[in-house]
Design a protein around this nucleic acid. Structure first.
Lengths: 189, 189
DNA sequence: GGACACATGTAATACGTTACATGATTTT
DNA sequence: AAAATCATGTAACGTATTACATGTGTCC
């Protein structure tokens, strides 16, 4: 009853590509390890729930992008997955998309949505909201600073990723401060 | 055959809240106007497809958050929707969430995903990728600069939103340049 | 009269999450 | 023995997109 006509023609989704990439850079690993990676990483967006990861691993195997080596003796250790030749080629193609709007385009941002609609709140409430946001962002920034320090000791590219989150958080903070000061000036007039 | 047990208990999704907010700040408007807003805005993430907007308007009306005034005479003009009292209260509560992880948390970023997995590409390919990304981001930055100038003449908060996109784009550009220079130094050693 | 913008909707599909279910192994 | 972690999976659901279908009014 599974629906999968022309699976090989489909492009990888962002999450599928990331899973494929994790198998690629981490070497042979089990679905469970992939899940842990998602859960523990502060920069990887998805939560790596079982209901997502296992079906994706299945799909990738059916598309011959990954294959597993059986581990009969060890009931505890799960199936170890590795990239196939096609998998390596596909991953390289998926990674190298410097002009794709999905990669280059500005991601969604729930805070930006709120700011766009802030006209609906009374000036005082607005001010309170923005002040609280600044406090939250300052705390978050500290967390990312620590993440960067930790990541620096491990993988260089994990560090880059953490650094990206940090710079984004800093940019958001600068932005909200700018909004606050602009609104404050407006009130004076 | 519609499934909607306990609709009033549900929280608003990000898109539902944004639709409600647009009706709130723009005043009475038709679903079509909402769709246009999404299509034309460079900072609002969603594309405002009919298949999304019309069902949302329906749901919001069923939850008594919005109501419409009939326009019998004008077949062309669609139904004009406005916020109800409950709608106004709900919108204020939805906007004012300065500590919500969804609002404050760092959004997903497909470029960050790529960078995290860049170890899989050969150094030369990596370099090409990053150089191309810089070019793309520089172009994008110019677009956002123009968006900001346009928005400055209209709504202040639309300008803030555009400004947020601009600062984010700038942060991403700085970040990738930093990654490139770090990798270049590594090669020298 | 034809093209285009206005206006509303439905059906099929894709994607990810939550919650549930199961069982083995290790730690306390 | 109980709790926690390892490990794999399924079912139901929510949400948004794409593509399709339909019709009206306006402009050239």
């Amino acid at each position: 009853m599974k629906k999968q006509e022309s699976l090989d023609k489909r492009n990888l989704t962002e999450l599928e590509g990331t899973v494929l990439g994790l198998i690629g850079v981490k070497g042979p690993c089990t679905p469970y390890v992939i899940r842990k990676e998602f859960k523990e990483s502060p920069t990887l967006y998805w939560n790596g729930s079982a209901g997502t990861i296992y079906p994706i691993i299945e799909r990738l195997e059916q598309q011959k992008l990954i294959s597993h080596v059986s581990t009969k003796d060890d009931l505890r250790g799960g199936k170890l997955y590795i990239l196939t030749k096609i998998g390596k080629r596909t991953l390289k193609a998926w990674l190298y998309q410097p002009t794709s709007p999905l990669v280059i385009g500005t991601p969604p941002d729930a805070l930006r949505n709120r700011v766009e609609l802030l006209a609906f709140l009374a000036p005082k409430v607005r001010k309170n909201f923005l002040d609280e946001v600044v406090l939250e962002l300052e705390n978050q920034l500290q967390v990312f600073v620590r993440d960067c320090e930790e990541a620096q000791e491990n993988n260089l590219f994990t560090f880059f990723s953490a650094r990206g989150s940090l710079l984004h958080a800093q940019a958001r903070l600068d932005w909200i401060r700018e909004v606050i000061s602009t609104l404050d000036k407006g009130i004076e007039n």
